Simulated scan of single mutants.
Amino acid sequence: MESFKLLLSFSTYFFTGIVMLMAFLIIYSRITPYNEWCLIKANNEAAAIGFSGASIGYVTPLASAAINSVGLADYIIWGGVALVAQLIIFFAVFLAIPHLGQRIENNEKAAGIFLCAASICGGILNAACMSY
């Protein structure tokens, strides 16, 4: 019986995490000035690199929230905090790199790599700050 309860708890957190990740990907791609999904389908490596970094940068604190949360509602709230943090990081990079959107659309990999690195660094810092 205990194993069933553990499996139920795991499933609840895991599938909630998948739903939050999908929501993040949809929201993030709607906020950016370019369509990551279309660019990736067109084999744009800069978009794939930047979007992958944002995904890792989101999932890292989401994993920390799963470990440290006191309940499902707490987990979801911290998932929202991680989403906002990644959007702030995107806008900071957008302001720091002139014409970021156009550079990503033009498949300039340096822009995608920098966005990726900033997203992952921000996600690691965010995750560390969630370990209370």
Rank of each mutant, 00 (worst) to 15 (best):
E2M: 09
E2G: 11
E2C: 05
E2H: 13
S3V: 12
F4W: 06
K5N: 14
K5R: 11
L6H: 12
L6E: 06
L7Q: 10
L8T: 06
L8Q: 07
S9M: 08
S9H: 08
F10Q: 04
Y13P: 05
F14V: 06
F15C: 03
G17E: 08
I18Q: 10
I18P: 13
I18F: 12
I18T: 12
V19N: 02
V19S: 07
V19P: 05
L21N: 07
L21T: 14
M22Q: 07
A23R: 00
L25K: 04
I26P: 06
I27D: 11
I27A: 11
I27Q: 06
S29A: 08
R30L: 07
P33F: 05
W37G: 00
W37I: 06
C38A: 14
L39Q: 03
L39P: 05
I40Y: 06
K41H: 09
A42K: 11
A42P: 02
N43S: 13
N43R: 03
N44H: 05
A46F: 12
A46E: 08
A47P: 07
A47G: 02
A47E: 05
I49K: 15
G50Q: 05
F51E: 04
F51L: 02
S52H: 00
S52T: 10
S52M: 08
S52N: 07
G53V: 04
G53Q: 03
G53I: 04
A54E: 01
S55V: 07
S55N: 00
I56C: 14
I56A: 12
G57C: 02
T60D: 04
T60G: 01
P61C: 07
L62T: 02
S64V: 00
A65D: 00
A65I: 01
N68P: 02
S69Q: 03
V70S: 04
V70I: 09
G71Y: 08
L72Y: 05
L72Q: 05
A73P: 02
A73W: 04
D74Q: 03
Y75R: 08
I77Q: 09
W78P: 13
W78S: 14
G79E: 01
G79S: 13
G80L: 01
G80S: 06
V81R: 09
A82C: 09
V84E: 09
A85H: 05
Q86D: 00
Q86F: 02
L87W: 11
I88V: 15
I89V: 08
F90H: 02
F91W: 14
F91H: 13
V93H: 03
F94K: 11
F94N: 07
F94C: 05
L95R: 13
L95D: 10
L95N: 14
I97W: 08
I97F: 02
I97E: 01
P98Q: 13
H99N: 10
G101L: 15
Q102H: 10
Q102N: 13
R103H: 14
E105Y: 14
N106V: 08
N107R: 09
N107S: 09
K109I: 13
K109R: 15
A110R: 06
A110H: 07
A111I: 15
G112N: 01
G112A: 05
I113N: 06
I113K: 03
C116L: 09
A118F: 15
S119I: 02
I120D: 02
C121F: 12
G122C: 12
G122A: 09
G123S: 05
I124V: 15
I124C: 05
A128M: 13
C129Y: 14
M130I: 01
M130N: 04
S131Y: 09
